[in-house]
Amino acid sequence: MPKWFTPDLTENDVTPEEVYFNRRKFMRAAGAVALFPTLAACESEGGNQARAEGRNELKPSPYEDITSYNNFYEFGTSKRDPKKHAQRLTTKPWHITIDGLVDKPGVYPLEDILKGMDIEERIYRFRCVEGWSMVIPWNGFMLRDLLKRVGVKAGAKYVAFETLHRPEEMPGQKLPLLEWPYREGLRLDEAMHPLTLLATGLYGKDMPKQNGAPIRLVVPWKYGFKSIKSIVRISLVDTQPPNTWNMMQPDEYGFYANVNPHVSHPRWSQATERRLGEGLFGKRVPTLMFNGYEEQVASLYKGMDLRKYY
């Protein structure tokens, strides 16, 4: 061997035969990943990790974190404002107007609504459109139980919700931050889905005011802004109702707002999220399709282009 060439590879660096032939399998798998990223993700390391996460890792975030870090612009735009300013909100008495295409419209006292409802605990992932997440042990009942009780008429296709509008107790409403009152909506089948909750508490305690007392929506497979707080009106309607963030910036916030790691928000990627409560060095985790509730809700959107209906 000429002196000017010193090999840096030895016999030990040669790929063993069986591994060499396995490379084809590997390359095929890689090709599949490229072609069907969602499908292949289930088979890959990351997918396994994500699934394991979905199963076991639902350790609720600390009560203190859940109740001191809120987006509730009615009480200010900073995350700490709601805890500070929401305490003066009067939540007793509380009435909810249920109207539109229902058999029994009316203004219902909250006690009457809660009577006979099965309040259960649901530990749900909560994913904010801003790229952070928590795990929250809600207490509440299924929205569908209420809708069944008031009777949904045949023509109803959507459910519209409204937050309380009371600027004297909600100082943020004195500013034109959003178009008040806050409004949200669901398609009727989303509203009737057993995962969809009207929550009245968390950690077994009454709903803290900063979290949307006395009653709020929780739709765990959608970004947090869909889960409207301090609800005073529920209307059954036949056309898609307006929702506040969509009215404000339609190119950034859609009506559906399903958690989807493959569809980026114009201002940030939604591929990963930071699970709060793990300190300064907490690890980023992959965001799961439909926030990990794909198995339960994917069928609602069969055939829909989720890029278009974001």
């Binding site: 600390p62 001191s68 870090y69 995350k79 409560g277 300190g279």
Partner: peptide, 15 residues
């Protein structure tokens, strides 16, 4: 402040 928990629950964003 971030490392000692004063900026919880999201010390990264606060910092």
């Amino acid at each position: 402040l971030a490392i000692s928990g004063h900026y919880r629950p999201d010390p990264v964003r606060m910092l």
